[in-house]
Simulated assay, not measured.
Amino acid sequence: MTDSSTPGSLYFITERDPFGDPNGSYVKIGLVRENETGRSSFDRLLEHQTGNPRILVVADSLTTTAPISELEASVHQQLARHRVSGEWFRAGGEGIRPFVDVAEAIRRELEHLHTHSSALETLAATEDTGEELLLDSEANDMHHEMVGVVRAIKERKQKLNRVALELQSLGGTETSDIEGICGHHYTNAGRRFDSSGFAQAYPDLISELGSSRIKSRFSLRQAPTLTPSADMELLKELCAAQSIAGSKPLKLARSSRAEALHADWIELHSGLHPLKQKEDLLEARMKLLCGPAAAVKGICSWKRTTIRTISQKELLPSHQELVDAFTKPTASSWSFKVNPWRPYRF
């Protein structure tokens, strides 16, 4: 089993052009984990060379102390508009340099965040003192930056949701999927243990058999809010009213309108990543400002309290009847998803 927190290297494999063009058309961006003893980017190249008539070259690689899986996933998301298939991306006239620059910037942010990890883990494992610290200039500057980042994230998410609703509405009154662009996914009905309901009904058993953990909740003071536009609310109503004529959604062919909306969605989705990364780093810095305290006045709060919870495993086998009584059915449902890359010519 691989560990997603393991550091490692990110490699960029390109194809040597048969006509001597130094900029190959495609680049593969993948990882080698630090714990994969004896393996390197060159070993990965040999694996991919098998069965490939074009000569592959390790054009560049980055080593990081941050979790390599997180770096790879972040780079893939931010470069989604260039994705061709799997880990292969289409390089432009500038070659892979812009891709490496994106990866370098993400690596720096992740490593910066990673340096805070051990201190934050220690603080997150203990209850806060309840104290509220007084504002200073550093906290004020950090708060101003965080408010701007949160507003930018909310604005981008609102635009992202708007484009998704426009795609979903292309089917009119009928629930529809669009080839290679978006689709509806069915989730079967299931069963779920109602742990909160059980806790209210049997607090003594929670105390006796449950386990303790620290519940952590961070919140930004004076966080910005956005109001959805009237036409966006109309789109929501239209999509909510769509119905499935048969057992499955209608299949629609791609149109120029759908492809344009898909391109907009991918661009917005890709641009969300650097903002979220900046938010994560600022949140980590704010938590370090709080330290053992519960809040920084006017800036943020970081509540950490001990709670007791119980799982089905802890109740079994001594209280099977209670597990059965608090295991509730969940309804089947359809969810709408947009493909985060374009599996068609662009």
Rank of each mutant, 00 (worst) to 15 (best):
P249L: 00
K215S: 15
S219H: 03
A240R: 00
A240V: 00
S229H: 12
L220R: 01
D231N: 02
A241W: 09
I244G: 03
L226H: 07
C239F: 09
Q222D: 13
S216W: 07
Q242G: 01
R213W: 04
A245Q: 06
E237V: 06
C239L: 09
S212Y: 09
Q222K: 13
R221H: 14
E233A: 13
F218S: 01
R217V: 05
L220W: 00
L234I: 11
K248C: 07
M232S: 12
Q242P: 04
L226M: 05
A241I: 06
P228D: 02
S212P: 05
T225S: 15
P249V: 00
T225R: 14
L220H: 02
Q242L: 04
C239W: 13
D231G: 04
R213V: 02
L250V: 10
M232I: 09
G246H: 10
M232G: 13
L238I: 10
P228Q: 03
P228I: 02
F218G: 01
A241R: 13
A245T: 08
S216L: 06
M232W: 10
L235Q: 04
S247K: 13
R213K: 08
L238V: 08
T227N: 14
S229Y: 14
K236M: 12
D231I: 03
L234F: 10
Q242F: 02
Q222H: 07
I214G: 06
G246W: 05
E233S: 13
S211M: 09
S212R: 12
E237M: 05
S243P: 04
Q222T: 03
S211V: 07
L235F: 05
K248A: 12
L250N: 10
D231H: 04
S219Y: 00
K236I: 09
I244P: 01
A230C: 07
S212D: 11
Q222I: 00
E233Q: 14
R213L: 06
A245M: 03
G246Y: 07
S216Y: 05
S247L: 10
S219D: 05
E237S: 11
E233T: 10
D231Y: 01
K236D: 13
I214E: 04
I214K: 03
K248E: 14
S211Q: 07
A241Y: 06
S212N: 13
M232R: 12
P224E: 03
I244D: 04
S211A: 08
A241E: 13
L235D: 05
G246I: 03
S247N: 14
S247P: 08
G246A: 10
A245H: 04
R217T: 10
S243V: 11
L234E: 14
S216H: 11
S211F: 15
C239N: 10
P249N: 02
K236V: 12
A241F: 09
T227E: 15
T227P: 07
P228Y: 01
